[in-house]
């Protein structure tokens, strides 16, 4: 069964504060989605609604066409992984995995064991005795091994060191290739995770900004590299996201489609046209000045 997610006019208010404003989008099952937004943009609020942690103030969420809230068949198949407070969790790693297995219909114990080894998690250690990075690795292990049709990682890498994050990304992609499911990854480590995303959703201050395929999105910008004067001349009039200069060589990120004609012109001037990074686009699209 495909777990499509349909969000319509979703709003969430905390007293007077509008955390989410009229969001609408559709997530087709089986893809990896990057959910990007600045601090306080409403990412966690949105994800907690998807995971039935709370109810929206207005609007609806439909998963496989049904309202997920208090719907056992859907809730079992949605797994939100977030940074939990484990200071009172005296259960051992092994015990945690055994409990999860009882409640997640698609849990794969063998795969969990494999991930435990990959992350070098101590099975007999109490969860509250693990370092923050290790606790995150345990969360990720539970998240991946649950193989929930909708798996949501909300900043799940917090506290992990770079090599551990690499393992997480690799295992996520490997398992996704074999058993495609809907994954939603919320992050601000955009530059590090962008290659994981099939599609990107950006929200800002609780409002929807865009939802596009990763490839399409990054083609909405370009990096122009070459001699400083030539570059400056070429990009004048374009929306500039970012610039870097080394000696006389300058690289400027621009926002907006470049036509074939533009590209030809750039080549004639001896400029190099490259892709723009999602990170730069993200910063541009959610910056205060826009």
């Amino acid at each position: 069964m495909k777990f499509d997610v349909e969000v319509n006019n979703l709003s969430l208010k905390y007293n007077d504060y509008e955390a989410l404003k009229d969001l609408s989008f559709m997530l087709e099952g089986g893809k990896v989605y990057g959910l990007l937004g600045r601090n306080g943009a409403g990412k966690t609020s949105l994800l907690s609604l998807l995971a039935s942690f709370r109810e929206s103030t207005k609007g609806s969420i439909k998963i496989t066409g049904e309202n997920p809230f208090e719907n056992a068949d859907i809730m079992q198949n949605v797994h939100l992984i977030y940074e939990k407070d484990y200071k009172d969790e005296s259960e051992k790693v092994k015990g945690m995995l055994e409990i999860i297995e009882r409640y997640r219909p698609n849990f794969d114990a063998e795969y969990a064991q494999y991930l435990v080894k990959r992350f070098k998690l101590p099975l007999d250690k109490a969860v509250n005795k693990l370092s923050r990075g290790m606790q995150s690795a345990l969360n990720v292990t539970m998240g991946l091994a649950s193989r929930a049709p909708i798996t949501i990682f909300d900043e799940a890498y917090l506290g992990m060191d770079a090599p551990t994050r690499e393992i997480f990304y690799k295992e996520l992609l490997a398992d996704q290739a074999e058993r495609p499911r809907t994954m939603i990854l919320s992050t601000h480590l955009v530059s590090e995770m962008d290659y994981l995303f099939d599609e990107v959703i950006i929200i800002d201050k609780g409002a929807f900004v865009l939802h596009e395929e990763y490839e399409t999105l990054i083609s909405r910008g370009a990096s122009i590299t070459g001699a400083a004067e030539e570059v400056d001349d070429f990009v004048s009039g374009m929306t500039q996201l970012n610039e870097q200069q080394l000696g006389n060589t300058k690289a400027v990120m621009v926002y907006g489609y470049l036509s074939e004609k533009d590209k030809q012109e750039a080549l004639q001037r001896g400029l190099e046209v490259g892709p723009v990074s999602l990170q730069d686009l993200f910063i541009h699209l959610t910056s205060e000045e826009v």
Binding site: E70, N71, A72, M75, Q76, H79, Y103, R104
Partner: peptide, 10 residues
């Protein structure tokens, strides 16, 4: 329990 997909009712 809710985090692991158990409804409030269950």
């Amino acid at each position: 329990y809710v985090n692991h997909g158990v409804t409030r009712k269950d």
